[in-house]
Amino acid sequence: MRRLETQSGFPGASSETAVVQDRWESLLGKTPRLRPWLSQMVERRRMVLAERLGRDAGAEIDRLLWSDLGRWLRDFEALPSYAVSAIALDLADEPPPRPADRPRPPAPDAGLPDRAEARSPENAACELEALVADPAFALAFHCIVARVRPRLEPLTKDRPSLARIPEWAWFGLLHASVPAEPRLTARVAISLVLRMLSPGWAAQPGGARKAALRLFHAGPLDARAVADSLRAALPTDWNLSAEAVPEFVAAASQVRKGLSEASALCARLVSRTCATCRRTGKPRPGGLGLLQEDGAGTASDAEVREVSETARKYAQMTGFAPLLAILDEAP
């Protein structure tokens, strides 16, 4: 049997760690498929700890690694053996981590973990572009550009107190306001594009996101009662004064209206694509084929011209071409 400490990246063993080491070796003996995963986890964890503590803190890093190994061991030992085998198989199937998936240090409020997929702006832009290559998401993107952004721009321009709140924060709040649905609907498509447009939101601490979401859904009566503790929990760079809270609440109401209008517009455009495809007998391309009609009326020619305008502005988004090919035909 291979000893744990002979594997690359493993912490040095001592008499204090012997029990954990023996139990791991027993587990790996029964589930050898888990070994590569464990090696990878230890290497990644060591890299993170070295970045945080410095490469000279070898002893402290080893101590923390043994603590992690003990915790993981308890989790695995609590599972039935076939489940450990299954998870090992599942882990072995996973692709190597992308650079954006590198483990990050825990957030200050570790009880409220950040969304695991908080990404760099460059990565988020690439993912958005990949997503809107599908006509369904190009359509959702257009609805946000055409109905949500026009509501948002004057709000932040006319109210200096809200100017420090970035657009992605509003988009993140709107995303969190859309109820989760298990299937791809027009509303889900809009919600997903909002998520892609708000990479900075996922990077906020969980406590700040929660406080902001509570304020985002507050009514005018709530606005008067907002406690200092809630304001203090908001993202620090917003610097929202007590006097600005009612303005935020009013702005949130406007932005939510923008989202309702975007959803309604999306439903009408979906209706139009369905009507055209029924008439021509052509299938709806990509994700458009998943979006169901919900009894909304059909989009007008003026609304179709708006889509053309957005497509012209965002020419790199390839999902607009198949969308316009359908919308340009009479339903």
Binding site: E117, E127, L131, V188, A189, L192, M196, G287, L290
Partner: peptide
């Protein structure tokens, strides 16, 4: 449609 759905689920839907 399956491919579009797969991408949307891995993107967070």
């Amino acid at each position: 449609t399956t491919w579009a759905r797969m991408l949307s689920v891995t993107a967070g839907a």
